[in-house]
Simulated assay, not measured.
Amino acid sequence: MSNHAALASQWMAASAQRVDQAIETSFDDWSVSAQQLKDAMHYAATGGGKRIRPLLVYATAALSNKPLDDIPGIDDCAVALELFHTYSLVHDDLPSMDNDDLRRGRPTVHKVYDEATALLVGDALQSMAFGLLANSRLTEAQKVAMISSLATSGGLAGMAGGQAIDLENVGKPLTKEALENMHRLKTGALLRTAVQMGGIAIDLNPQQLKSLDQYASALGLAFQVVDDILDATADSQTLGKTAGKDAAANKPTFVSLMNLDGAREFARKLHLEAVESLAVWGDNAYLLKAIADKVLYRQS
């Protein structure tokens, strides 16, 4: 293992622990009468997961060569994004959407509680995410830029729009271009926002943010291609969620469109595109490169 690879591995473990602690802390200040809702929100938010999105926030901010402790509001950014992502998973698992019983190796929120609670959990986590950004130590300009980015990536022109396209096309053939477009919205938009938020936190200029968007765009699509491969090849225990759901639901995937070998080759191509786009940052981008490797070679 190279020195950079070893450092990146240690950094990712420490940073995942950092965001887990920050998520716990974000719930400490809440004294509410709706205790079951708070408990359900906490259950959803602390169930583990890859933490790829907050890691992307931190890794992008690390381009400044400053310790994370010296970047005001960076933990609020990471937690807000992870809570927003968690809200989407809670709603995605509902019977009216993907109808799943397992998430991150545990029963889904609507199975532990009920469907009405799961709906409220998603709503409240989304509100909590925006509240964290609004009340953070970011500058006013940074707050506006991040809230705008997150709102756009989660809405009609992003995650929600992509999910709608997905639901509309169950059982229908899609071209590779249409499938890419759907997942650039459904999965990719929030990953791109993670990188944008990290860049905004360290005051990168528009040209720098645009160059990083090339990385995030390729990475976001690679993440989904690998997801499709794992859904077709891994078991539920390894995945931490129900394996084979896409095939069972007759959903168009990169595997159904390109077969396994084609999907694997496409994932490698996107990974290379992501890594090559970081060349302008030199060795400073070793953490972002390591996250790209983690996405390509992940097993769950």
Rank of each mutant, 00 (worst) to 15 (best):
T117C: 13
K176H: 03
L55A: 07
M182P: 02
S15K: 12
S33V: 15
T139N: 11
E265Q: 15
W281T: 03
N259A: 15
L270T: 04
N99L: 00
E115L: 12
Y215W: 07
M197R: 03
P67W: 11
G158Y: 00
A222C: 13
L83N: 02
G155V: 05
L270W: 01
V57P: 00
L63W: 03
G48P: 12
T187E: 08
T139Y: 09
Y297H: 15
I291A: 10
L239Y: 00
L55C: 11
V255F: 04
G220N: 06
L219D: 08
T46M: 15
D293S: 10
K241D: 01
L125Y: 06
M12V: 00
A292Q: 01
G105E: 03
A160P: 06
A157I: 09
N3M: 10
S31V: 15
S149L: 14
N284E: 07
A16C: 08
L179Y: 03
H4P: 07
R137W: 05
D29P: 01
L167M: 15
L150D: 07
E115M: 07
T139P: 12
L68R: 12
Q35W: 01
I200Q: 09
A248V: 09
H183V: 01
Q208S: 03
A118S: 10
I200P: 00
F27D: 03
W30D: 12
D98N: 13
Q207E: 02
T86M: 07
L63A: 09
A263M: 05
W11K: 10
L230E: 07
A118L: 04
H4R: 08
A292V: 01
G161P: 04
D93C: 10
M41T: 08
Y215R: 07
R51D: 04
R106L: 13
G48D: 06
S127G: 14
E115P: 12
N205L: 05
I229P: 02
F130Q: 10
A22T: 10
L102E: 07
Y113H: 12
A16K: 14
L272Q: 14
F266N: 09
Q10H: 12
E82L: 06
Y113G: 10
A232R: 11
D228Q: 04
A189Q: 03
